[in-house]
Amino acid sequence: MRTAQAVAWKEIQVYFSNPTAYIVGMMFLALSGFFFARDLNDPFPQASLENFFYGANIVLILIAPALTMRLMAEEQKLGTIELLLTSPVRDWEVIIGKYIASFVFLIATVSLTLYYTVLLYVFASPDPGPIYSGYLGLALYGGAALAIGLLCSTLTSNQIVAAVVAMGILLVMFFADLASDNIGGTASTIISEISIRSHFDDFDRGVIDTKHVVYYLSVIAFFLFMSIRALESRRWR
């Protein structure tokens, strides 16, 4: 566990000392801020973050892969993976450490948007429920997106490929429920349940449904498990 911590701590330091991460964070703030501002310009504005959360979902499709693309791909490009894999470190410790680092940076970035909430409280009296549940949902959604990004980064030594593939997977999962409309029966249900977006709606409304929490946690667990397996398989390739 200590090694997982060391990996996480090292990656967090890289995030906070690296201009790329700041640019990515800034893009997230600018774009999600745009969605928040759009809400305020409404003729009958609501004191809620509903639109911001929806916008943040879309923006995360671009941002999460940009944050995770470096994590494993660079190790493979630089060859440092050779030292990593010949150290007495378990594969899961590497993956979990890297994942935690990306999650910490994402949460740090997202927490900067808390001033939207402050603004709402200063100028109106918003319903706190959907704000809490929305942030919880955003953390889970972001966590799932990062896990997908990390798997893609583990599979290639090319950061661009890692990012593009992760964005592709996220887009497909995001729009899956739209595609399900065209199909009937059980297949439709299954496809719409895969959708990473449809599970967010309840959070946005202020409902914390265990079903959705379990969904996001399952996505995270599945993709982290696959990442660990992908790293293991490197030894056999």
């Binding site: 890289v14 000392s17 630089l78 060859g79 440092t80 993976i81 050779e82 030292l83 010949t86």
Partner: peptide
């Protein structure tokens, strides 16, 4: 084991 690979991989940052 202590290992020095041929390419000397280091974290450049």
């Amino acid at each position: 084991i202590g290992y020095l690979p041929e390419t000397v991989p280091l974290y450049t940052e």
